[in-house]
């Protein structure tokens, strides 16, 4: 369907300008998590340009983006790298390469599951679900903090939800189907 990985990225909103990259590294230099990356943002662009789709989508680095948009606002060539990170995560999700990084992506599916079901988020439930899906031992790590939050009245026990759940579920499903085209 696509000639190469670059044209695939360019076909998604936000990915258009990737070929303008001059490899200056401003993105990496501005990124608060790049110090921990094997493939820095600049390198990811290089890998995309070199058509190394598998390497990119399996990389843990794409899950290290905190969405702070520093790279995007500073990029001298107007590349929206935060959006590109989202595109890469979308593709990893779709192509199941997310399994490589299950420990982390489990959080995303827990969150998404709750939203698709109820439409609103409850942090307490989210943490529990995430822990059960990945490693129940995590619950122990979260417990002391959870206790404090409960004491301060900052934890909700009744799961919030939207009234028109049918509508919400329907639009989410339609979007899912459409995105899968």
């Amino acid at each position: 369907m696509f000639e190469d990985f670059t044209s695939e990225i360019m076909s998604y909103p936000g990915g258009e300008k990737i070929t303008a990259c001059m490899q200056c590294g401003t993105c990496t230099g501005s990124c608060p998590t790049s110090h921990a990356m094997q493939y820095t943002p600049r390198k990811l662009i290089s890998l995309i340009r070199a058509n190394q789709k598998d390497t990119v989508l399996k990389s843990l680095d794409i899950w290290k983006c905190a969405s702070c948009y520093s790279c995007t606002t500073r990029c001298p060539r107007g590349i929206k790298f935060t959006d590109i990170m989202y595109i890469l995560k979308n593709l990893a999700w779709k192509e199941q390469t997310k399994k490589e990084n299950k420990d982390i992506t489990g959080f995303y599916s827990a969150f998404q599951g709750l939203i698709e079901k109820r439409g609103r988020m409850n942090e307490t439930e989210l943490i529990m679900k995430y822990s059960f899906q990945t490693n129940p031992a995590k619950l122990l790590e979260f417990a002391p903090l959870g206790m404090k939050m409960i004491i301060k009245g900052r934890a909700a026990f009744i799961a919030p939800k939207v009234r028109n759940q049918d509508q919400l579920q329907k639009i989410m499903k339609l979007a899912q189907e459409r995105g899968g085209e």
Partner: peptide, 24 residues
């Protein structure tokens, strides 16, 4: 009857859903 905006999570998984949530 507002719903969750999807924060940074939904955009990571499905771009169209990430528009749908805030758009609702």
């Amino acid at each position: 009857d507002w719903n969750c905006c999807g924060a940074t999570i939904t955009p990571s998984l499905n771009q169209l859903q990430a528009q749908i949530l805030p758009a609702r």
